[in-house]
Write a protein that binds this DNA or RNA. Structure first.
Lengths: 226, 226
DNA sequence: GAATACGAAATCGTATACGAAGGCTAGGGT
DNA sequence: ACCCTAGCCTTCGTATACGATTTCGTATTC
């Protein structure tokens, strides 16, 4: 399955405690054990992971650079997120980056990829009845992964991954708030796949992909405004 | 003047040695004191800056997450760059991000900003005669800073900054290699400003801005191919 | 009773120390 | 002459220690 959660290009320093701490904290943030606003205490984490504080500090620095948490001098680190504005910014950024990634990826997508994507989208459609936001969001992530994962530019790919990670960390899960959006989303997925199959103009693919995400954002905004 | 070198939203931990090390190493990379491939030795840097290795390690981690250098376990850190492929990736990414940033920024640009941009572009034009690639590149950076600095989405803005920093760190300076490109560039700047002044469709501004950078990249590729 | 000032506890930031891993050089063997 | 091996030197990775800073509670005063 497509790996979306991770990473900078090649895992740096596998086996080091620093790396271990990085992975551990990151996954705890993403799976929600450390929810937004959570206060990360160095000594406590270090104790948890049976390491000293030094590697933990390094891990937190890396996560800070990725935007998953914020540091304050002499205060400590807190998990980022929560702020609706932040959500908006992240979605907008992701719409741009993911659109580009999908367009660049499109020419390299093989029929087998499309088949996988379609299978996932079918699952999503079935999921619409007894609606499970979490499962739906997960499938959504898998679906898009298939479409952009072939992007030949590793920087862009990395940025997409980071964007998804940020979204996951603020577990807004959108569809939890705007279940009505899910239906449209599935249809737009189908349209997007058609374009890719037909070797459509990359600009068009980029436009559609970007709009797809913007629409989700708009739905969220319309919802939260009322 | 527009600050382009810096970084993550608000400077984290001002006054800390870690921050000091971060700024120092980053500027040395960008100004070329540490050129690509340079081997960064912790103890040596720490000694240079009169601090211990711990803050230096943290600084290097942050720079790693920004892509300015790479880490290898038990080996050390080396300044990234050099690789022409890397240059290509960075330019492509920046074309997308900066295009979006410029488009988002455009509606917020005031006549005074345009005036500043135009003044810089005039300097660039004058610079064409007794051509100085370094100065030209610097002006180019300033020019674009004016155009995208109003972008209301801080994430995107941050990505643009990082892209510029990466480019600066590999000091390819493009115009050094493709002086012929400089002339077109100045003209395209003028066209871009006209669009912004006329409150053109943001999509159009984004397209033009992206093409502007792509053209520079293409010129570089055409040059290096022969 | 509320506000302020003082002090203790918690937590961070950094230095120092030491063990481990990689690389280089010299010496011996084939 | 060349390759392989042993040992040293460099440099990294992490633990521990300690001073600095913030926070929170308590007591004292108006």
């Amino acid at each position: 399955m497509a790996e979306v959660v991770s990473t900078t290009p090649s895992t740096p320093a596998a086996g080091s405690k620093s790396e271990h701490a990085y992975v551990a904290v990151k996954s705890r943030i993403i799976d929600g054990s450390y929810s937004p606003g959570y206060r990360l205490v160095l000594a406590q984490i270090a104790d948890d992971l049976r390491v000293s504080v030094v590697p933990v500090r390094e891990a937190l620095r890396r996560l800070e650079a990725e935007g998953l948490l914020t540091f304050e001098r002499n205060i400590g680190a807190t998990v980022a997120g929560i702020d609706p504005t932040e959500y908006l910014y992240t979605m907008q950024t992701l719409s741009i980056i993911e659109g580009a990634a999908t367009a660049l990826s499109a020419p390299l997508i093989k029929p087998a990829d499309i088949a996988r994507a379609r299978a996932i989208n079918t699952e999503m459609r079935e999921c619409l009845d007894h609606f499970d936001p979490v499962r739906f969001t997960r499938l959504n992530q898998d679906f898009h992964s298939v479409l952009f994962e072939n992007c030949p530019n590793p920087h862009i790919l990395d940025l997409v991954h980071r964007g998804w990670a940020r979204l996951a960390s603020m577990r807004s899960s959108t569809f939890r708030f705007v279940p009505g959006r899910a239906h449209n989303s599935v249809d737009e997925h189908e349209a997007l796949m058609r374009l890719i199959e037909a070797d459509a103009d990359p600009d068009e693919i980029e436009r559609v992909s970007r709009l797809h995400r913007s629409a989700t954002l708009d739905a969220y905004l319309a919802q939260s405004k009322q």
